[in-house]
Write a protein that binds this DNA or RNA. Structure first.
Length: 397
DNA sequence: CTGGGGTCCT
DNA sequence: AGGACCC
């Protein structure tokens, strides 16, 4: 059956994908830790930025990634909680993924607060009983007639499973979220945003065109980032409709045939990418940004702090890293982005044989070597960020 | 006065 | 080692 679609160059619409998107994640974690924050406007602060805020704060016009100063102007009573230490968020994030894994082993994480779950097999199993599920939650596009979803049993079944997932997250962890249910990852993610917060939306296959039409520009298509969007604008392409109408040869000339084809599929709501189970992290990193770091002594103190925190996380992970990477950001008049430099080296396995103190001291020596490959410490320098990353994590050898 | 993370590809 | 993308 699937072969038949593929041979005709058509899409497989038989999958059922659920996208789970936690409501204002960091703010929820802090409200769980301190319930007295629930009815107050709450912002999570990293350096000078409100990275996210609860819905009480949003009513006052506070938004994600807003400067502290502007947020306080809009909402003088805004309560700010520092969120630079991600420990609690990371822990809750993995608890959420583990809870979802009870419904299907096919769970893919996207950042700390989103998960894709492929529930196709669960749907197939449930539909073998004669039971016919009712659709749970909102539907897109909205329709007047209820109960006409007989053709969409699989979607309705998926929406029941999504409701069960959301119930489990709420009763087990106290977390509320949105869910989107559709036949691929792109559409599940996009439709999840239709009704917020703490609601779920299912996409009828006939609503794909309309859903894609709700996007303001092609930049809002996941997978089309700022860089690609600028190149599209160069070609006079800005809206999703522009992209749908763009001649294939124009896109191929700018991006190459593979990228062009993926973009043409995405803008039509076509996304064959599988839900790839995420597993344990590939890297463990810790970073700090600051106004100024201008001496090797200062850098060593900061790197020691990062290493201490990383060693604790490594203990919880159980694996050992075989690569160490140090990244710095140098102060530069123009682009604050992309001006990061990194150097990496192998970690001798014997380094983790002794006590933690000794290990940290030897890792710091390696960090300093890497650091000095990027920064000439005999001349004045001005750094605004240091990152240390453990990579090639393996079971130990 | 734009975080602190992550992924994969080139 | 850097660059794109995601949150």
């Amino acid at each position: 059956m699937i072969l038949f679609f593929l041979l005709l160059g058509e899409e497989d619409t038989s999958r059922v994908i659920v996208h789970i998107d936690v409501d204002c994640f960091y703010a929820q974690v802090e409200m769980i830790r301190d319930p007295s924050l629930r009815d107050k406007p709450l912002g999570i602060q990293q350096k000078y930025i409100v990275v996210t805020c609860n819905y009480v704060a949003r009513k006052h016009g506070v938004t994600k990634l807003m400067g502290i100063k502007q947020a306080k102007e809009l909402c003088p009573e805004l309560v700010l909680v520092k969120g630079e230490d991600l420990t609690h968020y990371r822990e809750m994030s993995y608890r959420i993924t583990v809870t979802l894994q009870k419904f299907s082993p096919l769970v893919e994480r996207l950042g700390f607060d989103e998960n894709f779950v492929d529930v196709t097999e669960t749907v197939d199993a449930r539909l073998k009983s004669t039971f016919s599920p009712q659709l749970n939650g909102h539907i897109f596009p909205e329709m007047e007639i209820e109960g006409t979803y007989e053709r969409h049993k699989r979607l309705a079944c998926g929406s029941q499973i999504a409701a069960e997932m959301r119930q489990a997250l709420h009763s087990d962890l106290g977390i509320t979220c949105c869910a989107g249910i559709a036949h691929n990852k792109l559409l599940a993610k996009l439709v999840a945003g239709q009704h917020k917060p703490n609601q779920q939306t299912s996409l009828l296959p006939g609503g794909v065109g309309k859903l894609m039409g709700t996007l303001k520009t092609a930049r809002n298509i996941p997978g089309i980032g700022s860089r690609t969007f600028k190149r599209l604008q160069t070609l006079g392409i800005s809206t999703v409709q522009d992209l749908q109408d763009a001649p294939a040869d124009v896109l191929q000339a700018e991006f190459g045939s593979q990228t062009a084809q993926v973009m043409q599929q995405l803008c039509r709501g076509v996304d064959p990418s599988p839900v790839t189970p995420t597993g344990p992290p590939q890297t463990i990193s810790d970073e700090d940004s600051f106004k100024k770091c201008a001496s090797l002594q200062d850098a060593k103190e900061r790197m020691t702090g990062l290493l201490q925190s990383l060693m604790k996380r490594l203990k919880g992970d159980g694996r050992f890293p075989h690569v160490l990477r140090v990244t710095v950001r140098k102060l530069s008049a123009s682009n604050k982005w992309t001006n990061r430099e990194s150097r990496q080296c192998a970690i001798p396995s014997h380094l983790f044989g002794t006590g933690a103190e000794e290990t940290i001291s030897k890792l710091l020596d390696l960090c300093v070597v890497l650091f000095c490959k990027m920064v000439d410490v005999n001349h004045p320098f001005h750094l605004t960020l240091i990152n240390i990353c453990f990579a090639k994590l393996e079971a130990r050898s």
